[in-house]
C-alpha cells in the first residue's frame, strides 16, 4: 500500500507573491465593479416592479396583454429573420475581406463600420430618406416598407449585419489560408474548399455572429423609431413598446417590459453560450 503524501500545513503552502495578489485583487475589483453595476441595474428594475410602494402596476395584466404578446412575437420573429439575413450577407463579405487584398480595401473596411459608429437615429433617418425620397421609393410604394414590419427588419438588419461582418471577418482571419490551399491541391474547387473546410471550422464564429446579430436586433430602437414608427399592433417591437409606455407615463409597465427583455436576452445568450461551449462545436486549436 502506498503511503499517503505528507500533509503540508497551511502556513507552508505555496502562495502567490504579494505583487501577484495585488494584481489579481485589482483585476477582481475593477472587473467585479462593472458586473455589480449591471446586476444593480437589473435589481433596481426588479425592486421597482415588485417591492416599491410608488409602483402600482399590475404585472400579470401587462405580461398577459394582447399588445405584449404581439410585441414579443414581433421581436422574436424579426430578430430571427434579421439574424438569418445578417449571416447571409456577413459570411461572403467577411470571407472576401479576410482572404483578399485589393485597391480600396481600407475604404470598404471603413464603410462596413459606418452602421456601428453612426448614431442610431441617423441610420433610421437615412433609411427613411432612402425609401421615401429617392428612386428606391418605388419599392416602398410596391411593398409598403416604411412604417410597416419590413421597416423593422431592415432597420435591425442595417446595424446587426455590421456586427456580424466584423465577427466573421475575425473568424475567417483566424483560419489559416493554408488549409484551403491544401484542399485545393487535394482536388477541391474554391467553393468546395470553402464549404468543406472553412465553414465547418467557422461554426464557433458563426454562432457568435448569430448571437451578436440577434442580441443587437432585440435591443435596436433608434432606427426602428424613425423608419418604422411607433404604431401599436404594427411595428411595436419590445424596445418601441417600452418607449410607448414611458411616453404614456406608465413607468411601471415600461419596466415590466424591460425585465421581460432582459429575461429573453439572457435565455438566448445562455443557450448560445452553451451551444458554443459544448463539444457540438469543434475545438479549434
Amino acid at each position: 500500500m502506498s503511503e499517503a503524501p505528507p500533509r503540508i500545513s497551511t502556513k507552508d503552502r505555496w502562495r502567490p507573491p504579494a505583487t501577484d495578489r495585488a494584481f489579481y485583487t485589482g483585476l477582481i475589483i475593477l472587473g467585479g465593479s462593472y458586473l455589480l453595476f449591471i446586476l444593480a441595474m437589473v435589481a433596481a428594475d426588479v425592486y421597482f416592479v415588485f417591492f416599491s410602494a410608488k409602483n402600482n402596476v399590475d404585472v400579470a395584466a401587462v405580461l398577459l396583454s394582447e399588445d405584449m404578446a404581439y410585441s414579443i412575437k414581433l421581436s422574436l420573429i424579426s430578430c430571427c429573420v434579421t439574424t438569418i439575413l445578417a449571416l447571409w450577407c456577413a459570411v461572403p463579405i467577411g470571407y472576401f475581406m479576410s482572404r483578399h487584398n485589393f485597391f480600396g480595401k481600407s475604404l470598404i473596411d471603413a464603410m462596413l463600420d459606418i452602421p456601428i459608429v453612426l448614431p442610431p437615429l441617423v441610420i433610421g433617418l437615412s433609411l427613411l430618406i432612402l425609401f421615401r425620397q429617392t428612386p428606391v421609393k418605388f419599392l416602398d410604394d410596391l411593398f409598403g416598407i416604411a412604417f410597416h414590419i419590413p421597416a423593422v427588419i431592415i432597420a435591425q438588419f442595417s446595424v446587426a449585419c455590421a456586427f456580424a461582418v466584423r465577427t466573421l471577418r475575425g473568424t475567417f482571419d483566424e483560419i489559416p489560408m493554408r488549409r484551403e490551399q491544401v484542399a485545393l491541391t487535394l482536388g477541391c474547387s474554391r467553393s468546395q474548399a470553402f464549404w468543406m473546410v472553412v465553414m465547418p471550422e467557422s461554426k464557433r464564429g458563426l454562432l457568435t455572429a448569430a448571437t451578436l446579430a440577434w442580441a443587437r436586433s432585440l435591443g435596436e430602437f433608434g432606427p426602428i423609431l424613425i423608419f418604422a414608427g411607433t404604431t401599436r399592433g404594427r411595428t411595436d417591437v419590445l424596445p418601441i413598446a417600452v418607449h410607448m409606455e414611458i411616453s404614456a407615463g406608465r413607468l411601471g409597465a415600461a419596466v415590466v417590459i424591460s425585465l421581460m427583455m432582459v429575461a429573453i436576452a439572457m435565455t438566448v445568450l445562455i443557450t448560445f453560450r452553451l451551444l458554443v461551449g459544448r463539444s457540438l462545436v469543434p475545438n479549434l486549436n
Binding site: R178, R179, A183, T185, V197, P200, N283
Partner: peptide, 13 residues
Amino acid sequence: IGFVPQDGSLFQT
C-alpha cells in the same frame, strides 16, 4: 501533386 505544409495544416473538424 501532394502537398505537405510546414505545420501540417490539418482540417480541424
